[in-house]
């Protein structure tokens, strides 16, 4: 019973995510694109919840939907870029398709190489004894992956300082 629910939920969320992202790249109006992207984020967050990764799901909604996409919307609303639709510009389409295809193949190769797809299943991850999702996440983040974490934060700091410098230069 529970498995059926999980499966139905996964298919609904997955199809929503795929369809919404397709709509996102094909809309002519950039604001509509951003809104379809919002739906994609929600669907992905739902899939995360199904995987018992509720922390990631909450952060996904908070950071991507709540902060980053809002900034996109700001830019799109204020600059109001005129889009003529990407189908009318063949050269760019070909270039874009090639890049996308290469990226896709790379992702597939990486996934195949690590064997994630074979072992992937619709079940929660095994948490260490006595640790909730957030605690387990924090423990791993600040012990095993402390260096990448700090490097990423320095990257963000540099980007922020750069943005301030550019904004200050009148």
């Amino acid at each position: 019973m529970n498995e059926i629910f999980m499966n139905v939920g996964f298919w609904v969320l997955g199809i929503t995510a795929v369809v919404a992202s397709l709509f996102m790249v094909t809309r002519e109006n950039p604001v509509h694109s951003a809104l379809w992207m919002l739906l994609t984020f929600f669907a992905v967050a739902g899939i995360f919840i199904q995987l018992d990764a509720e922390y990631i799901a909450a952060i996904q909604v908070m950071v991507y939907a709540g902060a980053i996409l809002v900034l996109y919307m700001f830019v799109v609303m204020l600059l109001n870029p005129k889009s003529t639709g990407f189908i009318k510009v063949p050269a760019k389409v070909i270039l874009g398709s090639v890049v996308a295809l290469v990226l896709f193949l790379q992702i597939v190769m990486t996934l195949m190489g690590t064997g994630v797809i074979k072992s992937a299943q619709m079940s929660g991850m095994n948490l260490p004894e006595g640790l909730s999702n957030v605690k387990a996440f924090g423990a791993v983040m600040f012990t095993q992956y402390i260096v990448p974490f700090e490097v990423a934060s320095i990257l963000l700091l540099v980007a922020m300082i750069g943005a301030i410098v550019i904004a200050k230069k009148d």
Binding site: E54, M73, N133
Partner: peptide, 25 residues
């Protein structure tokens, strides 16, 4: 009674801004 209740509420309140942006635009 979920484990990330605080984050859930923060996430929802950050989504609430879309109603405002969309209606304005």
């Amino acid at each position: 009674d979920i484990n990330v209740g605080v984050l859930y509420i923060l996430a929802l309140s950050s989504v609430g801004v879309y109603g405002i942006i969309m209606s304005g635009w």
